[in-house]
């Protein structure tokens, strides 16, 4: 699907938008940002697999775009998140933090396209993808794609996929915390970090509680 067929949303000069999408199975969104606008998007999938294509275009200078996504996959679910972050103007910022936690035979895929166009100087862009595999049969694929044509920019990206830190689990057990509780505390901590920047504290609280209750079922 090309971005032209997606829902397009424009942010006018100086406008701010914080959007929280919870447990939507298909997210095909296109955002166009004018000068000085701020977009902050949260994608939270705790109980529904997601297929997401998110395109953000910074058309004016001094825009800020943030994407925070967390996806918990179980059974034989398959989730995919693709972001297309396009810096087409100067002095823009973008931050992306994408996390998957996969158990059983769940599959996850992250595609992160980051474009900084030729004259888009002084852009500061970061893209971070961290994934936790809770079973040996879970599968995660990550494809960061950075295309940077301007020279005076900062662009950082990092991707890592790993298992729970068994040393941390043992440390917690040594203090009397049960094995499964220790694992759940670590998984919850891993996920909750994605919601740290949410402005709406009531919604944040609800989602943190939702994480706790869904983690209860993790084996």
């Amino acid at each position: 699907m090309s971005w032209r067929s997606m829902d397009t949303q424009s942010l006018n000069k100086g406008e701010s938008l914080e959007l929280v999408l919870t447990n939507e199975s298909a997210v095909h969104r296109h955002f166009v940002q004018q000068e000085g606008s701020r977009l902050r998007l949260f994608l939270v999938n705790l109980s529904t697999p997601v297929d997401a294509d998110i395109t953000i275009e910074q058309l004016g200078p001094h825009c800020v775009s943030e994407v925070y996504a967390l996806c918990l996959g179980r059974g034989d679910e398959s989730s995919r998140i693709a972001t297309h972050m396009r810096h087409l103007a100067t002095d823009g910022e973008s931050r992306q933090l994408i996390k998957f936690v996969l158990q059983d035979k769940a599959k996850g895929e992250f595609l992160g396209e980051l474009l900084i166009a030729k004259d888009s100087q002084r852009v500061d862009a970061t893209q971070t993808n961290r994934n936790l595999l809770l079973s040996p049969t879970a599968d995660m694929r990550t494809r960061p794609q950075l295309e940077i044509y301007a020279d005076d920019v900062k662009a950082g990206h990092g991707a890592s996929t790993g298992q729970l830190d068994e040393q941390a689990v043992f440390y917690m057990q040594q203090r009397g915390i049960g094995y499964n509780d220790a694992r759940r505390m670590l998984i919850a901590a891993f996920l909750k970090d994605v919601l740290a920047e949410m402005t709406d504290s009531r919604q944040q609280e609800q989602l943190l509680n939702a994480i706790d209750s869904v983690i209860e079922q993790v084996q």
């Binding site: 941390a168 043992f170 057990q173 203090r175 919850a188 891993f190």
Partner: peptide, 24 residues
Amino acid sequence: MPPEQRAREGVFLSFQYPVEIPGV
């Protein structure tokens, strides 16, 4: 006993290399 039960029985280890636990 599993490790957590030993701890609850009152066995404590001051680790040579205490583990960092981000987010907890």
